[in-house]
């Protein structure tokens, strides 16, 4: 059974279709990079997967929790799916540790005394063990994004979604975040990343999906996609990176 299965996902804003029937299956341990021009629907698809965007047709299934238009099972599904945003979205009034333990505490009923062990565990995975008591505005953008990843990890998700997580960062801070994600990939986390970092997608992702005009235009093994693109649209899209 795939960790994530999307079947015939359709969504439109009014009369404007943005997703025209997406089919995608992600196996356990897969790292899937989603690439494409802005407006191709890649971020919208990602936001549909954990229910931030309602959709009109199709189903999304994560480890047995099925989400459809009715939006039943939404919270069950969200407990299994972690999401990291472009703008980090840490809670400014909470310390790093409080950001991390909030959801485990109030959603999963984690006892207070187990909080600090959890904080240590997830922070060490993103290399920020010493920042537990800092507040978001004391951290650099790259550090904030790594805390956001740690916060998501604390819920022990089966699948993690990354929505252009390095787009808001200065180039010199991008590396530390990508390194953290690469380490998660090595550890076997199932991930879907919407990204503009072609080199990273090619190196880290096991599979790459090229989205175009609201559909999955081309997909396959990352190496295959980048070295032998079949469609002219994909060739055009990755051309500058191949030079």
């Amino acid at each position: 059974m795939p960790a994530l299965r999307i079947e015939n996902l359709k969504k439109s804003y009014g009369n404007v279709p943005v997703l025209k029937g997406i089919n995608l299956a992600v196996e356990n341990g897969d790292v899937v990079a989603v690439i494409g021009r802005s407006g191709s629907g890649k971020s919208t698809m990602l936001r549909c997967i954990n229910g931030l965007e309602p959709f009109q047709e199709g189903t999304i299934e994560v480890v047995g929790h099925k989400l459809d238009q009715s939006r039943a099972n939404l919270r069950e599904l969200r407990k299994e799916v972690g999401m990291v945003f472009q703008s980090y979205n840490l809670f400014p009034h909470l310390s790093v540790a409080e950001n991390i333990t909030l959801a485990p505490r109030v959603v999963k009923g984690l006892p207070r005394d187990e909080g600090s062990a959890l904080v240590r565990e997830v922070l060490s995975r993103v290399g920020l063990a010493e920042k537990a008591d800092a507040y978001p505005d004391e951290l650099s953008g790259g550090q904030q994004q790594r805390v956001a990843i740690a916060r998501s990890l604390a819920m022990k998700p089966k699948v993690m979604l990354f929505d252009e997580v390095t787009s808001a960062l200065d180039p010199e801070l991008t590396g530390e975040v990508l390194k953290t994600i690469a380490q998660l990939a090595e550890a076997g986390m199932t991930m879907v990343l919407v990204t503009h970092e072609m080199g990273f997608a090619r190196r880290v992702a096991t599979r790459t999906v090229f989205m175009h005009q609201g559909t999955v235009w081309e997909e396959g093994k990352s190496e295959e996609i980048f070295t032998h693109p079949k469609t002219p649209e994909l060739k055009n899209f990755i051309a500058p990176d191949l030079k």
């Binding site: 954990n50 931030l52 969200r78 799916v81 979205n89 809670f91 959801a103 959603v107 916060r151 819920m155």
Partner: peptide, 10 residues
Amino acid sequence: QIEAGLALGL
């Protein structure tokens, strides 16, 4: 901020 909370399952 609200989306981040919802995405965490709150």
